[in-house]
Design a protein around this nucleic acid. Structure first.
Length: 827
DNA sequence: CCATAGCATGGAT
DNA sequence: CATCCATGCTATG
C-alpha cells in the first residue's frame, strides 16, 4: 500500500505507515485514514506517531499522563486539550470538572462512509474503547455524517455536535487517570464550531475543504471566558498561559495539508522544514516489555526538536526510553543509581542473577561508560540498580534533582544517557558559571542560591546532539586506541587539584548538609524542601581554595625560610577553573581541564593558568582540539582513571589535612590548604611579612590565610630566625607539609607493593594478555623511581587501565536473552 | 575504624 | 493493600 497522507491531518507528516482509504471527498478522491493510529491507540492507548509532529504531545497538567495526539483514533480525547487547560479525565474529575455525559453515541471518525466507499475503516473506535481487539466494521447503516471536529474560526460558538463522555482510555487496572472520550459528532458541514458548555472551552478543528484538509485539531486556543473555571484548580494562570501559548505555537505549523498524498520523502522534507516541536512533554513508552505500565514520571520528555537533532542525518533512530530525577542517593557517593523497576525490566537486558551484567551506556559527550546493571532481591521483588555511576554522574556534573535520561539508538541498540539539569539557564556556559559562587568573595564556606527553578531547562539531549554531531563516531571507535597508541599513563600532581574529593566540580555536600540535600530530587514530600534552601549549593573552603590561582602574568618573588624557598605574589590569587595535573612517566607535566561548553576533557600545558571559564575554543595550545566537535582527549576509561586518581589523592590529602588540624588545633589557619606540587601552589608559597595584605577577595577581619599573612611586595621581609606568629605559622606549615609528604610517600610505596602483589597473584585467576605481562614489569621501576621524587604521584600503567573492564566485569550465569543483550552491547 | 555490598525498612502511591 | 523505591542499617572485608 502506498504511503498516504492521513486525512485526519495530524498524522500526515508521518510517512512510514500505511493508510486505509476513507470516505470520498468532493474532489472525487478519498480521504485516507491512518490505520496505524488506530492500531497504536488500540495497543498502547496512545498514538505513537504523533510525537514526531509539530504539535507535540499533550499531557495532563495534573498527573502528567499524556493525552492523545488527536489523531483519528483519538478524536475522542480532544475535549480536554482545549478546556482552559490540559487535563485528563481523572484529574478533571477530581477537580469536579467532569462534564455530564451526553447520550449520543459517537461514531468513530471515518466509519460512517465506509459503506459508500466500500472499504472498511481502520478500526472501530467503539471496540477500542472497550479494550478489545479491533474489529472491522462492516459498514454502518445509512450515511452517517462524517465526524468533523469543530472549527474555531466559525465563530458560531454553538454546539453542533453531541457529546458523550465515555471512559475510553486505559482500561481498568491501569494506573493513573483514565481518559475521556468526548466524541463530537457533527454534520458534514465543513466548518463548525463547538463549545463545550461543560468545560467552557473550545475544542480543535478539523475541516475538510474539497481536496484539502485543514486541521487545527488539537489546539483550541480560545481563552476561557471570564466565568470559566480553570482546571485543575491548582494550575496557576501563568503556567496555564504558558501552556496555551506553547500549544498555539504548535498548532500553527499544521494547518493545511495538501492532498493528494505526498511521497515519503516529500512529507519528510516538509516536516523538516516546518516547525519542530520544542515543547517538552512526556512521551509514554511506545514499546518495551511493559509498555504503558510505566509511571508517567519516568516518561522521557525529550522534545521533537531534540530528537530530530540527535538523530540528525544518520540512519539511527533515537528512541527515548525513560528518565529519572536523581535522588540524593543516586547522585551520592555510593555510586548506585536506583532504576525504576518497570523501566529496568522494560528496557534493559533481562537479568536472572542479582549480580546482573555490565551495561555499556554512552553519555552525552559520546563517552562510553560501563555500569553494573543488577538487582537486589526485595520482598519477593527486585530492586534494580546501576552500579558505578559516580564517575559518569560527576562527569555530567549532575546532582540530586537533576534528571538522567535513557535512550536507545536503533538499530544498533546502543544505550544512551542524557541529562537535564534541574535548574539552570539556557546556555551551558552560563550553567557552568552558575556553579561558581557569586559570593565567593565574602565568607567561608560560601553558599549561594542556584537559579530559579522555572528557568528553561538545559537538556542533556542537547548534549547528545553535540556529541553525536561532532564526535559520535570517534568516541565510539577510539576508546581503546588511546591506550595502545600513546603513553597514556600519568600520575597526579598535587598542584591545583581539579576536583573535589569525589572528582566533581560541583561540590560534595558537607556532612551537615546531607540531610538537606536528601530532600532534593525524590518524589513526594521529600521534594518539599525549604524554599530558602532549595537548590542551594555549598562550596567548602577547601573547594574554593582549589579554584584560586596565582594572578596571571605576574612573576613571584622568592623568599627563603629555613633554606626553603617560597614564592610570594604581589597580587592576591584569582579564581580559576579547576583542573587536574598529571605527570607522565617521561616527566612531562600536564594539566587536564574540562570544557565549560561541551564538557570534554582537554589536555593543556601544566603551566597554563586557566581562567574561571574555559572552553575548547580557548585551547590555544592544541589547535587540533580547539573545537567542541573534536572528540574528547580522554577516553572514558582514562577519565575514569584520572578522576579516580584525583579522588584518591584528595582523600589522602584530606586525611593528612585532618591530622594536621588535629596537631595544630589552636590554629585557625586553613589546615587543608597544602600542596607544593610540581608547579607549586600559591596558597602554600607562604612568605613572612611584617605588614600583611588584605587585598585578596576573601579577606575578612582576622583572616590569617596564607595570602593575608604575606607582606605586600616590597614591604619588609622577616629574618630567618624571626619567631613572630606569621613566621612560626609558615614554618609549622612547612614542617607539616614535609611530614605529610613523607607519609604519603610511604603509603604509596606500600600501595605499590601491594598492587604488584595483587597483580601478579591475580594472573592465576584472570586471563591476562601477553602484552600486559610483558609491559607491566616495566611500569613498576618507574613507579618506584617516581616515588622518590618530590612529586606526589601514583603510577598506573596503561595496561592496567586496559584491564579494567575485564576485572570489573562480573560474569554471571546469563540466560539466552542476556547473552543476546551482551552481544548487542558489544560485550 | 572505614568503605562497601547487600538487605531491610518504611513512606508514598 | 500491594508495590515501589529512597535510604537506613548492618555484616563484611
Amino acid at each position: 500500500m502506498d504511503s498516504k497522507i492521513c486525512m485526519n491531518g495530524v498524522c500526515g507528516a508521518t510517512s512510514s505507515i500505511e493508510w486505509k482509504k476513507g470516505w470520498p471527498l468532493k474532489s472525487g478522491e478519498f480521504a485516507y485514514l491512518c490505520d496505524k493510529c488506530g492500531t497504536a491507540y488500540e495497543q498502547l492507548g496512545f498514538c505513537d506517531l504523533f510525537h514526531s509532529e509539530d504539535t507535540g504531545w499533550r499531557e495532563c497538567i495534573s498527573c502528567g499522563k499524556r493525552l492523545h495526539c488527536g489523531c483519528i483514533a483519538s478524536s475522542s480525547l480532544l475535549e480536554l486539550l482545549d478546556s482552559g487547560g490540559i487535563n485528563c479525565v481523572g484529574c478533571a474529575r477530581s477537580c469536579q470538572l467532569h462534564a455530564t455525559p451526553n447520550h449520543v453515541k459517537a461514531k468513530a471518525f471515518g466509519t460512517s462512509n465506509s459503506n459508500s466507499v466500500g472499504e472498511t475503516p481502520s478500526t472501530s473506535l467503539g471496540s477500542q474503547m472497550n479494550g478489545s481487539e479491533p474489529k472491522k466494521r462492516e459498514g454502518s447503516d445509512g450515511v452517517d455524517p462524517v465526524l468533523v471536529l469543530p472549527h474555531q474560526n466559525g465563530n458560531t460558538n454553538k454546539p453542533i455536535g453531541q457529546i458523550k463522555m465515555e471512559e475510553a482510555f486505559h482500561p481498568a487496572g491501569e494506573s493513573g487517570c483514565t481518559f475521556s472520550s468526548n466524541l463530537c459528532q457533527a454534520s458534514a458541514e465543513s466548518s463548525k464550531n463547538v463549545k463545550l458548555d461543560s468545560y467552557n472551552g473550545y475544542i480543535g478543528v478539523n475541516e475538510i475543504h474539497g481536496s484539502q484538509v485543514q486541521t487545527n485539531l488539537s489546539i483550541a486556543l480560545s481563552a476561557p471566558s471570564p466565568n470559566t473555571k480553570l482546571f485543575p484548580a491548582t494550575v496557576d494562570e501563568g503556567d496555564l498561559n504558558k501552556r496555551i501559548s506553547s500549544l498555539q505555537q504548535g498548532s500553527r505549523s499544521r494547518s493545511l495539508l495538501p492532498k493528494p498524498p505526498k511521497s515519503t520523502s516529500a512529507v519528510r522534507s516538509e516536516t523538516n522544514a516546518g516547525i519542530i516541536s520544542q515543547i517538552r512533554v512526556a512521551r509514554p513508552p511506545v514499546e518495551g516489555r511493559i509498555k504503558n505500565q510505566l509511571l508517567p514520571r519516568y516518561w522521557p520528555r525529550i522534545t521533537d526538536q531534540e530528537l530530530q537533532q540527535i538523530s540528525g542525518d544518520s540512519n539511527s533512530t533515537i528512541i527515548p526510553l525513560f528518565e529519572k530525577v536523581l535522588s540524593a542517593s543516586d547522585a551520592g557517593r555510593i555510586g548506585r543509581l536506583v532504576l525504576p523497576k518497570a523501566c529496568a525490566e522494560a528496557y534493559f537486558p533481562p537479568i536472572s542473577q542479582p549480580e546482573g551484567l555490565p551495561l555499556r551506556i554512552q553519555d552525552v559527550k559520546g563517552k562510553e561508560w560501563v555500569f553494573q546493571f543488577r538487582f537486589w532481591p526485595n520482598n519477593n521483588s527486585r530492586m534494580y540498580v546501576l552500579e558505578g555511576v559516580t564517575p559518569c554522574i560527576q562527569s555530567m556534573q549532575l546532582q540530586a534533582g537533576d534528571t538522567v535520561t535513557f535512550s536507545r539508538m536503533d538499530p544498533e541498540g546502543k544505550l544512551l544517557m542524557g541529562f537535564r539539569k534541574a535548574s539552570t539557564v539556557n546556555s551551558t556556559q552560563e550553567t557552568r558559571l552558575s556553579a561558581i559562587p557569586k559570593s565567593v568573595f565574602s565568607t567561608e564556606p560560601t553558599s549561594f542560591s542556584a537559579m530559579p527553578e522555572n528557568l528553561p531547562l538545559m537538556s542533556g539531549y542537547s548534549g547528545l546532539l553535540q556529541s553525536f554531531k561532532g564526535s559520535r563516531e570517534s568516541s565510539m571507535n577510539l576508546s581503546s586506541k588511546h591506550f595502545n597508541s600513546g603513553d597514556f599513563s600519568w600520575y597526579l600532581t598535587e598542584k591545583n587539584e581539579g576536583r573535589n574529593a569525589d572528582g566533581t566540580f560541583s561540590p560534595s555536600m558537607p556532612v551537615s548538609d546531607r540531610k538537606r540535600s536528601r530532600n532534593i530530587g525524590s518524589k513526594s514530600k521529600r521534594l518539599l524542601i525549604d524554599s530558602d534552601e532549595a537548590l542551594e549549593l555549598k562550596l567548602s573552603w577547601e573547594e574554593l581554595q582549589d579554584m584560586l590561582r596565582p594572578p596571571l602574568s605576574i612573576q613571584p618573588t622568592t623568599v627563603t625560610i629555613e633554606d626553603h624557598e617560597f614564592e610570594e605574589y604581589e597580587q592576591p590569587p584569582v579564581l580559576g577553573k579547576r583542573s587536574i595535573f598529571t605527570v607522565r612517566f617521561s616527566g612531562e607535566q600536564e594539566q587536564w581541564a574540562q570544557c565549560d561548553n561541551c564538557f570534554k576533557w582537554r589536555r593543556l600545558p601544566a603551566d597554563y593558568l586557566l581562567p574561571p571559564q574555559w572552553t575548547c575554543q580557548d585551547n590555544i595550545f592544541y589547535h587540533s582540539r580547539c573545537s567542541c566537535s573534536v572528540p574528547d582527549d580522554l577516553t572514558s576509561r582514562e577519565l575514569e582513571y584520572l578522576l579516580k586518581m584525583d579522588k584518591d589523592l584528595k582523600k589522602r590529602r584530606n586525611a593528612a589535612g585532618q591530622r594536621t588540624a588535629q596537631a595544630h588545633d589552636s590554629s585557625d589557619l586553613d589546615s587543608h590548604a597544602n600542596g607544593t606540587g610540581v608547579a607549586g601552589d600559591v596558597r602554600e608559597r607562604g612568605a613572612t611579612s611584617v605588614a600583611t595584605t588584605t587585598k585578596h577577595p576573601r579577606h575578612r577581619p582576622g583572616c590569617s590565610c596564607i595570602v593575608c599573612i604575606q607582606p605586600p611586595s616590597g614591604k619588609g621581609k622577616h629574618n630567618p630566625t624571626c619567631t613572630c606568629n606569621v613566621c612560626l605559622t609558615v614554618k609549622r606549615r612547612f614542617k607539616t607539609l614535609m611530614m605529610r609528604k613523607k607519609k604519603r610517600q610511604s603509603e604509596r610505596e606500600a600501595e605499590i607493593g601491594q598492587r604488584n602483589q595483587l597483580m601478579w597473584s591475580s594472573k592465576e585467576e584472570t586471563e591476562v594478555d601477553s602484552f600486559s605481562r610483558q609491559v607491566k614489569p616495566e611500569a613498576d621501576p618507574s613507579d618506584r623511581e617516581r616515588s622518590g621524587s618530590e612529586t606526589l604521584a601514583r603510577g598506573h600503567s596503561s595496561n592496567q587501565l586496559q584491564k579494567l573492564p575485564e576485572t570489573t566485569s562480573k560474569s554471571s550465569a546469563r540466560d539466552i536473552s542476556e547473552a543476546e543483550w551482551s552481544n548487542k552491547l558489544s560485550f
